[in-house]
Design a protein around this nucleic acid. Structure first.
Lengths: 250, 250
DNA sequence: CCAATAGTGTCTATTAGACATTATGCT
DNA sequence: AGCATAATGTCTAATAGACACTATTGG
């Protein structure tokens, strides 16, 4: 079917009123999730190996179609629960991808979401959904312009990505880097109690840089987001660090 | 029709492979555009008065459905051209709105776009599409959290907004404020040649604050985005300002 | 010369980076 | 006591705001 719009003589008429959308073919609507955590100080995303055509053998983000009675957020939560077995993690909408041939089978528009997984949630997902693989994500650029990312298997082999999922991963890393130091997303990658060093490690891993320790501590403590728990980390052979909790706003 | 997903026993299976999406009802997919410019130093958005049910008498963003052979960007450009009669302005995807009852007639998921109109483009749209009204947008909040916005008619009356378009407008203002001082979007609201005072006026109008003149000049000139044209503004009864052009990156 | 705005110099306050020093828990 | 890392003090560099001052045009 060709373009479904009627010819319309004037531009000021109201679109919805003269258009019967049930009569025309609609794109399918899906969600794709970037399940992102940190493994050994590096960003890692959970991917599935495609067994079927198209892109068989390539690696894909978990996703699913949006039901007619499902909000976009609900569809994303459904995928999170049904395909990764987890709940209660940070989830935000990223961007909507609508290239015509992003899926060769049919027209699918996909709303991409970013989920941030603390280490425990990432481990839980890997356990409950054994076909998921934590792929290391290399981000060989900095700044606002973005660029390509590379997915690596645990052994360090490059994993070819299915569909436009490399673009989605790149968008996820760009968004995360952009929000990291003015928002509280960094805490979504940490357990409930954490040390300032762990927080700095998260920022360094996401940004791919090293940060100045005193300046980082000052900034974080001045934000008013950190509540001391009064206890210290255990099991070190040296001075144990203070444990903090994340305290939203104030 | 109820939830269209099959019951699936395991979480690791691939969704697309076992699902026939053509067999299930799909949400309709639309785009809605925030056509934003400045009028008398205030943000203004182009709205249409709805004549038909639902939300008759309320004011709506221009929008249209996404054709099966149309990318999202193409659908947004189509609306820009067909409903506002303009081309060549800054256009970016904002966010995708998918609440179940956002349109009472049927399930419509809408990808919102933000278009930034210099004064000439805004005037052109008002001329070519006489049913469009430039509504002043009041943004009674600051900071990253966002909040409600109010649309005002040229006479200052509050315009009730249709559907979830108040949310879309709020998201547009939040996005624009957030990007304004680290990106080059501010230039999208200016003509090709402009003075530093005009640039500062744009920033002040969008942010809803006043800014320090020397500091603003320093920052903008240090960015390397401003190329002097060598000419000055005309028609003033006082010292005329230098005219600059926007020079992307460097 | 005056009015009005463009454009700049300079001081201060704030914030970030560099680097060294002190503090502390464990063995 | 000594090790390893936590936590902090302090100097310097960079950046932003305040405010006054100079520059330039038309009338």
């Amino acid at each position: 079917m060709q373009n479904a719009y009627k010819a319309r003589p004037v531009i000021e008429t109201e679109f919805l009123a003269e258009y019967d959308p049930t009569a025309y073919e609609r794109p399918a609507l899906a969600v794709d999730l970037v399940l992102l955590g940190l493994r050994e100080g590096r960003p890692a995303a959970l991917l599935l190996k495609r067994e079927q055509h198209p892109h068989a053998g390539r690696w894909a983000l978990p996703g699913g179609f949006v039901g007619i009675d499902q909000t976009l957020d609900a569809a994303a939560l459904h995928v999170l629960h049904e395909k990764a077995g987890i709940t209660g993690v940070h989830l935000e909408q990223l961007y909507t991808f609508g290239a015509l041939a992003r899926d060769p089978r049919m027209r699918i528009v996909s709303v991409a979401y970013l989920a941030l997984l603390p280490e425990a949630a990432l481990a839980e997902a890997l356990e409950r959904a054994p076909s998921l693989v934590a792929a290391g994500i290399e981000v060989p650029w900095s700044g606002e312009a973005g660029g390509d990312v590379v997915a690596l298997s645990p052994k360090g082999e490059v994993l070819p990505l299915a569909f436009d999922h490399a673009d989605i991963l790149a968008m996820a890393m760009l968004r995360l880097r952009g929000k990291l130091d003015y928002s509280d997303v960094g805490f979504a990658l940490l357990p409930e109690h954490f040390t300032l060093r762990q927080l700095q490690d998260v920022h360094e891993a996401v940004l791919g840089t090293t940060l100045n320790k005193p300046a980082f501590r000052r900034r974080m403590l001045d934000r008013g987001w950190l509540a001391p728990t009064g206890s210290r980390e255990a099991g070190t052979s040296f001075r144990p660090a203070e444990l903090y909790r994340f305290q939203p706003s104030r």
